[in-house]
Amino acid sequence: MATTSPSLSPRPRPVPSARWRRFTKGGGAELLILLVGIIVLWSTISSLIPNPSRYLPAPLTVIFSSSDMLWKGLLPNYVGQTIWRLVLGSILGLLVGIPFGILLGLNRTVSDMFYPILNFFQSISGIAILPIIVVWWGNSEQTVFTVILYTALFPIAFNVLAGVRGIPIIYINVMRSLGASNMRIIRDVIIPGAMPNIATGARLGIGFAWRAVIAGEMLVGKRGLGWMIFTAQDTDHTDQVILGMVMIGTIWILIDRFALRPIEADTIQRWGLVQR
């Protein structure tokens, strides 16, 4: 005996689009409210404290100064310089670190030998090295660059070495029994097998390098974002300091979320799953 349920559906309401719902469900609405709240709180504190232009300029002031600096072309210049140093240092770090890591990782004995010392140098941050480099090469572009290269290099080399070391020896043995040459083994087994670690090392190295650029610019005095916020503090332009900080955070998020992480995830997905 089939029972029919009486039609109880209420009057059809317009259904909000799926995107909007994901936004609000995912805390989007609360985030907007929170951001507005932060800006309001910020403005309130600014207006209440003595000497706001020194201690906490109002949000509007920061926005005005940013458009001012954009207009004068200074901001793009500084951003460009900083990013240029980062990119150059990172690329060189990859070009040197990856082959270095692979070579060291190939032989068990050699990799066991170099593992601790690479770990050691990885943990002495580039900034700690900086004073030594400054004594050697003074306050020059070269100094900043060396520090960035150092900072990027070791995490990359270390992670690549660890990755190569972790490749099951059986794959290499199989290739040998197929008569493969060393180059072939490196190309077909080692590099794909170590890919996830290469990606992780790259992400770590570039992350450390980013911090090193900012600090290096502050200490050595070469123009760029780090330099900008440091001198702004010195010349009482706190609005530029805040502007610079926001830029630094935003740029890093852009680099990390839209370049580094997708590459890492993609590499791990493609090679990691296949490998393990």
Binding site: R211, M218, Q233, G249, W252
Partner: peptide
């Protein structure tokens, strides 16, 4: 993302 260093001037 605003690494510790960037907070120094402020």
């Amino acid at each position: 993302a605003i690494s510790g260093i960037a907070w120094v001037p402020l």
